[in-house]
Amino acid sequence: MERIVVVGAGHMGSVIVRGLLDGVPGVEVVVVEPSADRRRSPDARAELTSAYDPRPDDLLILAIPPQAFDSFADSLPPGACARATVVSIMAGVRLETLASALGTRTVLRAMPNLAARVGQSMTVLCPGDQVPRGGVERAKRALSVIGKVLVVQDESLLDAATAVAGSGPALVAYLARSFTDFARGAGFDAADALLLTSQVLRGTADVLAEPGVTPESLYQQASTPNGTTAKGIATLREHRVGESVGAALEATMERARELAG
């Protein structure tokens, strides 16, 4: 039986555990939570323990805060991760740091986002250059339980992924607030304003996922000359909204680089 060990019973760790138990039949899931204050089992089907007991060929998912990594690595016996495939979702901890601290070159970094809780994460996965194809596929399969997975070979792309995918839901939610505020100001109640906005976002995302559709083709298709949508797009351009969003993403990416050292 395949064994997947999730270190960290916080929000993202718990989401991954539930996804594995529901979406990967026959897998043995172990949850490691060193903190007695936070120790809990996200699902009774998972084994809960306070320390990692290594076994050969584990898939080890590190869902702990970056500041807890040194303590976790120091607690391991020598060679504990030598035959494991290690997937880190810790922001800013580079592949070389993971490999050096854990004593293995079979390390991957992943950047999921908060949509994981509804099975719609956009996770970007980057393997180290010595991870075999089977290890990449195993990690991708495990993370697919929380949404889509995109594999990239260039670790520097994870900083951009942090901006677009990691922080993206929060940035989109910030913009969505303008829609709900407008709807409420026009007379809709809070629940209906949120329904209008969330369904517009959901439907737009589904259309953008269709073959051959791009953001530009979609808004051009929706715009008739001198029509309502064309007026709205023109106003966004006048206020340089596109440039402002780009600047926000650039700032987010630079901050990700700073945190990684």
Rank of each mutant, 00 (worst) to 15 (best):
R3L: 07
I4D: 03
G8K: 05
G13L: 05
V27Y: 11
E28P: 00
E28Y: 09
V30L: 08
V31A: 12
V32D: 08
P34V: 08
A36L: 13
D37I: 04
A46W: 06
L48C: 03
D53H: 15
D53W: 01
D53G: 14
D53F: 07
P54M: 10
A63C: 00
P66L: 10
D70H: 09
L76K: 00
P78F: 03
G79T: 10
C81D: 02
R83G: 12
A84Y: 08
R94F: 01
L95Y: 02
E96T: 09
A99L: 07
S100Q: 12
L102E: 06
L102S: 09
G103L: 04
R105V: 06
V107S: 04
M111A: 07
A115D: 09
T123W: 01
G128R: 02
R133D: 15
R133W: 12
G134R: 12
V136Q: 12
E137M: 13
S144L: 07
V145M: 09
G147N: 00
L150M: 03
L150Q: 10
L150D: 13
V151C: 11
V151L: 03
S156L: 12
A160Y: 07
G166K: 10
S167N: 14
Y174L: 15
L175F: 11
A176R: 07
S178Y: 06
G187K: 02
A191M: 01
L196T: 11
L201K: 01
R202E: 15
A205I: 06
L208P: 08
L208D: 08
L208K: 07
P211E: 14
T214L: 10
E216T: 15
S217A: 15
S217V: 14
Q221K: 15
A222C: 13
T224V: 14
T224R: 03
P225G: 13
G232T: 05
I233W: 04
A234N: 13
V241T: 08
G242T: 08
G246E: 05
G246H: 06
A248E: 01
L249Y: 03
A251Y: 03
M253H: 02
R255L: 11
G261A: 01
